[in-house]
Write a protein that binds this DNA or RNA. Sequence first.
DNA 1: CTATTTGTTATATGAATACTATAACAATTT
DNA 2: AAATTGTTATAGTATTCATATAACAAATAG
Lengths: 125, 125
Amino acid sequence: MIIQVDFNSNEAIYMQLCKQIIIGIANSQIKEGDNLPSVRELAEDIGINMHTVNKAYSILRQEGYLKVDRRHGAIIAIEVDRYKAQLELVEELKISLAKAISRGISREEAKDMVDRIYDIYLGSK
Amino acid sequence: MIIQVDFNSNEAIYMQLCKQIIIGIANSQIKEGDNLPSVRELAEDIGINMHTVNKAYSILRQEGYLKVDRRHGAIIAIEVDRYKAQLELVEELKISLAKAISRGISREEAKDMVDRIYDIYLGSK
DNA sequence: CTATTTGTTATATGAATACTATAACAATTT
DNA sequence: AAATTGTTATAGTATTCATATAACAAATAG
């Protein structure tokens, strides 16, 4: 899986890393049990500091996307609290859809976008 | 329209203001042509600094939610670039739905949430 | 006309965050 | 025995967030 950061983005680097890894999980580029490069390796690879990668890994671990095992490094291990997952999604949709409604995007358009994004992530599944 | 901020939130105050105003537009608490309290008034009201409110208003103006008229203060004036609006929504859904998929939330569940949120904002419209 | 209120701009300060740098540690692998 | 793992600690710089005070031109109210 290729990870790259935009140094000109106003989004924090550690946040870009988190997002790309989560997207990688969604589209099955990386799966349960796969291991991520070591913090030093990935940092070297991208050309950033080790601690920035470590911060991203720590957040992903805290949010239940991976576990860290001294023997195998960071490995993908999804831990789902369905209720929390739903709450978080609702919270994020609330603001995104408020913008959408303010700008005249219809309910059907929004749901079509959800469909299209699910298609992209899941392929034909 | 009642605006209140959570000082213990890790979300910036100016961002909380932006979101609440956008949500207020989505659910028709405030409409095209309505005017918002002056930066000093709202700041006084909430108990925050004038510049924090000004920052929120400036962002909302820049993003096409309101215009500032010296005669009437800040008034809601939605300026929609449909293409930009769609791009922004897709971009936000991409990460929200990646998390959802990683956590086993189905396509239908996600679309149901969209429906429910649209219902909440639009009422029976 | 005068006084007040409007958004806006400028400058400064303190706190928090983001990123980097160097270093060290115990556990594990080679 | 040497190297690599995640983790922790400390420190420095840059940026952001929120505050405070001050001033400006434009517009409103009395």
